[in-house]
């Protein structure tokens, strides 16, 4: 299975986003690199608004992800509740 991934700037918001991603995607791997955090998973990865709000302790708009996002790989599907990445193979 191909890996999808996203990378976030290593900042305070990302800390909570990563925690939420890890909770929602138990098989995901987190890789810390200078100033950035890369999260990858086989086939699929999902970021859920509700999970991030739970961790960050405030309302969080899905599109706020763009403020910390560095890059991603995979087909994107986004609505107001979640962003998912997947490969069809």
């Amino acid at each position: 299975m191909s890996k999808v991934y996203l990378a976030l700037q290593d900042n305070d918001d990302s800390r909570y986003i990563v925690e939420a991603i890890v909770d929602d995607n138990p098989t995901a791997t987190v890789i810390n690199q200078p100033a950035m955090i890369r999260i990858e998973n086989d086939g699929q990865l999902v970021v859920r608004r509700a999970s991030v709000e739970e961790k960050i302790g405030r309302d969080w708009d899905m599109q706020e992800l763009h403020l910390s996002l560095i890059t991603l790989g995979g087909n994107v599907d986004e609505d107001e509740d979640q962003l998912s990445l997947n490969w069809n193979t």
Partner: peptide
């Protein structure tokens, strides 16, 4: 990431900020 690793926060930040559009 290498710029950050070499103490250049300005370049690292414009790079990642540009890259957030790049995504």
């Amino acid at each position: 990431s290498g710029a950050a690793h070499n103490g250049d926060m300005a370049t690292c930040t414009f790079g990642f900020s540009a890259q957030s559009d790049e995504a």
